[in-house]
Simulated assay, not measured.
Amino acid sequence: MKRRQLMGYAGAGLATAFLTNLGSALQADAQSSGLSVQWLGHTCFLLTGSGVKILVNPFRTVGCTAGYRSPKVAADLVMISSQLLDEGAVDGLPGKPKLIYEPGVYEFQGIKFQGIAVDHDRKGGKQFGVNTAWSWKQGGINILHLGGAAAPISVEQKILMGRPDVAFIPVGGSSKAYNAQEAKQAVEILNPKLVIPTHYRTQAADASKCEISPVDNFLNLMQGITVRRSNSDTISISPGNLPENSVIQTLSYKF
Rank of each mutant, 00 (worst) to 15 (best):
E102L: 14
K96P: 01
G104Q: 05
P97N: 07
A150F: 13
L85Y: 14
Y106S: 10
G92Q: 02
G110C: 12
K98C: 11
R122V: 05
D121N: 09
G147D: 00
K137D: 06
G148Y: 12
G147S: 14
Y101E: 10
K123Q: 09
Y101C: 09
S154R: 06
G124Y: 01
L85K: 13
I100T: 02
K126A: 15
K112C: 07
E87S: 11
I143S: 01
H120E: 10
F113N: 10
N131M: 05
I143Y: 02
G88A: 15
G125M: 09
S81Q: 04
G125P: 09
D91W: 06
N142Y: 03
A149V: 01
P152Q: 08
L84D: 14
I100E: 00
Q127C: 04
Q109T: 08
S154D: 07
Q114W: 12
A117K: 12
G140L: 15
G140W: 13
I111R: 08
S154N: 08
E102P: 04
E102I: 02
P97L: 05
S81N: 14
G140H: 03
N142V: 03
G139R: 04
K126T: 09
G148I: 03
Y106K: 03
I111H: 11
G104C: 03
F113K: 07
E107Y: 10
G129P: 02
Q138P: 01
V130L: 08
H120I: 02
G139P: 02
G88F: 14
K137E: 15
S82L: 10
P152N: 11
F128M: 07
D91H: 08
G92H: 00
I141G: 13
K96T: 05
A117L: 01
P103G: 05
A133G: 13
I153A: 01
I111A: 13
K96W: 10
K112P: 03
V118W: 02
L84N: 15
G92D: 00
F128I: 06
L146H: 07
A150I: 06
G140N: 00
G129M: 08
K96V: 04
L85D: 13
L93M: 05
G129I: 06
S154H: 06
W136Q: 03
K98D: 08
G92K: 04
V130P: 07
W136D: 03
A117T: 08
G95Y: 06
F108M: 06
P103Q: 03
K112I: 11
H120K: 15
K126D: 11
A133D: 06
G115V: 12
H145G: 04
G92L: 01
P94D: 05
Q83C: 12
G115D: 07
T132F: 09
L144I: 04
S81P: 09
L144G: 02
S81V: 00
A149D: 00
H145Q: 10
D119F: 07
K112R: 13
F108Q: 03
G88M: 10
Q127A: 15
L84H: 15
L93A: 00
D86S: 00
G139D: 00
K98E: 07
Q83K: 13
K112L: 08
I153H: 00
S82A: 10
P94A: 06
V118A: 12
G148R: 12
Q138D: 03
N142H: 15
N131T: 14
Q114E: 14
G140V: 06
S82M: 00
K96E: 12
D86A: 05
G140F: 09
G125F: 13
D86L: 11
G88W: 05
S154E: 11
Y101P: 05
A151H: 04
V118G: 11
